[in-house]
Each structure stands twice: as C-alpha cells, then as structure tokens.
Simulated scan of single mutants.
Amino acid sequence: MPAEPTTASTAARDLLGEHAQTVAEQATRHALTLESILAVLRSSRLDATAARTEAIEVASAALIGLRTATDQQRSSLLEPVTHAFTRLRDDLRPLVRFGELDVQFIEPPASGRALPGDVARAARTIVRTAVLALIDAGTARRVRIQWDCDGRNLLVEVRDDGDGMLDAHDDAIRPIAERVAALDGHLRVSSTPTWGSQIDITIPLDAPAFSGTIDDQQDLTERERDVLRLVVTGAANQEIAHTLNISINTAKYHVANLLRKFGARSRAELAALSR
C-alpha cells in the first residue's frame, strides 16, 4: 500500500504544478502581446506616430500584467463568470482593434456561478491559444467566442468562418486538448468544409477527487508506462517521441491521457506524484 504523502512532499508537488501552469499561461499571454503589437504596427488605419503610441500602450499594459501575474495566479478566490469573461475581452482588445480577425464576444449570463480561480485562468488561456491558432492558420476572418455556465461546468464555444478543415488531432489543437484534459474536461471539434469550425469545451467547476499518489496497479498500457517514466525525467514531448520512436502527436496524446487518468494539473505534478 503506498505511503501517505508528507506535508512537505504535498507542498512541493503543489509548487511544481503551480510553477508549470504559471509558465504556460505567461507564454501564451506574451505571444498574444507580441501578436497585438504586430497588428498595431501593421495596421493601415494608423500613421507612424499613432501606431507607436498604441504599441507602447499595449507593451506597457503587458508589463504591468507580467509584474502582477504571479500574485494573481496564486489567488484561490472565486471569480464571477462575467468578470472572468471581461478580462478575456480586455486581453484580446488590441488584437480586435488593429488585427485582421473580427472577434465577436457573446456575454455569459450574469447569474452564472462564480468560477474557481484556476478554471477562470485556464479558460482564458485556452481561448487565447485558440485565437492565436486561428491567426496562424490564416483562413478565418471572423471568430465568435461564447461562454456559459450550467451550474457545474464552464461551457466555452469558439466558432470561426475559416476553411472548415480543423481537426481535434491538429497540432494547433493539441495544447488546448492537453490543458482541457488536465482539468478533467471535454473537448469537441466539429468542422464543415468551406463553412468553418467550432470548438466546444466543457470544464468542470469542481476539481475531481485527487488521489495524491500514483499506484503501480493503475490501469496503464505499456506505452503509457514508458511515457510516464520519461515524463518523470523531465523529457519534453519531442524527446519522448524520439526515444520511443513514435510521432510527437502520439506522445502528446499519451501525456494528455496520463494527466486525465490521475487528475494531475500539469506534467510537473504528474512527475511529482510518480516519484
């Protein structure tokens, strides 16, 4: 029978998981900031002086956000769903004003249940990642973002008018799928050629029961055990794929499954549990 984790090991696990989540969310936010600055500088609606002023404002706001991000992410307070959605809209505002993508926001009901801090942050990161993926694809001109809450789950919908070729196994969707799986949520992608694609995401508001350890008797395939051993060493997806002679998409798929099976929020937490 596995030993109960000590207070010190539990704290270390939580810190590792929180650090990994912070790094991932900040990376997405920085990418969005850079895309926004580029959109401002490339805009044909602004002259050089106005573009410089707007770019400075975007960069300044991002710098302020960076300085406070760690404190915000450590907070465990509930966040009203409308407030969480407004923060997302504020994140995307520079891109909406000066980019080529027309972003429409469908406000969630004000009566929706307040979101746990980690769910609100994850949902914003997921949507930001999806919007950046659509920009990279370059086929969509309009995207609609909608949030709702059914009392137990946050429901996120991202719909575009692109070429309708998006698939759940695309590389652009993999980071989103992995994050949704880590939250014990569900993701569905539906596409119609020439009409566009829709991403539907369901994120539980209440975290699943956490076992606190990984039992060797858990129902793992041999391949999943191989992947888990490499995750523990800190190997990235590309290194896992090379070592096991599998595709990087397959490696990402196995990591996402492991996160889901054990209720871990990050690779660091999964590794800490295994140890």
Score class of each variant (00 low, 15 high):
M1N: 04
P2S: 13
E4N: 12
A8W: 07
S9K: 05
S9T: 14
D14C: 07
T22K: 06
A24Y: 05
A27C: 03
L32Q: 12
T33C: 09
S43K: 13
S43D: 14
A48D: 15
A51C: 11
E54R: 07
E54T: 12
I56T: 13
A59P: 06
L63V: 06
R67L: 05
A69W: 02
T70M: 07
T70K: 12
T70G: 02
P80V: 04
V81R: 10
R87D: 13
L88T: 05
D91W: 08
P94K: 07
P94A: 03
P94W: 05
L95T: 01
E100P: 05
Q104W: 01
F105V: 01
I106F: 06
P109V: 10
G112Y: 10
G112I: 03
A114P: 14
L115V: 04
V119Y: 08
R128H: 03
T129A: 14
T129S: 15
A133F: 04
R144V: 04
Q146G: 10
D148I: 03
C149F: 01
C149A: 08
C149M: 00
D150G: 02
L154P: 02
V156D: 00
V158R: 12
G162L: 02
G162Q: 05
D163K: 03
D163W: 08
L166C: 03
H169S: 14
A172S: 14
P175L: 11
R179C: 01
D184W: 10
L187W: 02
V189M: 11
D206T: 15
D206C: 08
A207M: 06
P208T: 12
T213S: 10
T221V: 11
R223A: 11
R225L: 12
R229L: 06
R229E: 10
L230E: 02
G234A: 09
A235R: 07
A236G: 15
T243D: 11
I246Q: 01
K252T: 04
H254G: 01
V255Y: 02
R260H: 15
G263P: 07
R265C: 02
S266F: 06
A268G: 12
A268R: 09
A268W: 01
A271E: 04
